[in-house]
Nucleic acid binder design. Structure first.
Lengths: 135, 135
DNA sequence: CAGTATCCGGGAGGATACTG
DNA sequence: CAGTATCCTCCCGGATACTG
């Protein structure tokens, strides 16, 4: 994030909107990593209705590559949003499910989805006007 | 995200969590662009308490480069989150302020900030456990 | 003061092939 | 079925220098 090559690193903090925000170790940045990635949010939404297996998720999200499907699942599992369960059948099947943390985050995500739907037209309009007047 | 510069693109839609999500023209993706960018969210939070001028913002967010400060402001202005007002003094001064849309989005952002604070420890813990057991 | 203009490295993410 | 392993491309964002 920042090289700060040579600094003692005394946990620099800036005040924004009445909030102490750490530049070096920011909770919001951590969460934004999960909301900002291309597939993370969609993945959590895809598990909203219940556990799904790898190939089910692949069909649910046709545009994702195996590589990104695997990586997204691993990242979300790592941060505790979802749990991975292996059933030792043959061939093996693996199930992914939201954890309590993931379900809690899902609420936030639904607010975001709702807000997006309500204001998308407004955003598109602003963009159009800006682009017309701009160049 | 998508140029839309030539394809008929019959608006492919997938159903997730009871929601119709367009792959080609997704409201959530548009908003996630603003929440996901490295500086966008922080910029909106920085304008929460009132209008700020360019150099004020630079001091508020010491780690940002001029380039990214300019670009972040332009992107957010383009999408209608903030308004830019030029005062023809000399040297000129420029003021940035949240629009109603920006203030509406700010509420969402504050939920995100609150949630992040409340669950950061949990996330860090999950991460630690995963990394230990992993390799 | 409030920006452009360039150059550049690193990482996110896509495509493809292979495996237990 | 549920993944690894590679390779490659694009573009985000940092550094630096210049300007009205």
């Amino acid at each position: 994030m920042n090289t700060t090559a040579g600094k003692p690193e005394g946990s620099r903090v800036i005040m924004i909107d009445g909030l102490a925000i750490s530049v070096d170790d920011c909770p919001v940045r951590d969460v934004l990593g999960s909301v900002g990635g291309k597939w993370n949010s969609l993945m959590i939404l895809s598990l909203a209705e219940g556990p799904r297996r790898f190939s089910q998720l692949r069909r649910l999200i046709p545009d994702i590559s195996q590589r990104m499907l695997t990586q997204t699942l691993r990242d979300l599992q790592r941060d505790g949003y979802l749990a991975r369960t292996v059933f030792p059948t043959k061939p093996p099947s693996v199930e992914y499910a939201l954890t309590p943390l993931g379900r809690s985050f899902l609420e936030l995500l639904r607010s975001l989805v709702r807000w997006s739907g309500e204001h998308h037209a407004e955003i598109r309009a602003a963009r159009r006007i800006f682009d017309e007047n701009g160049v």
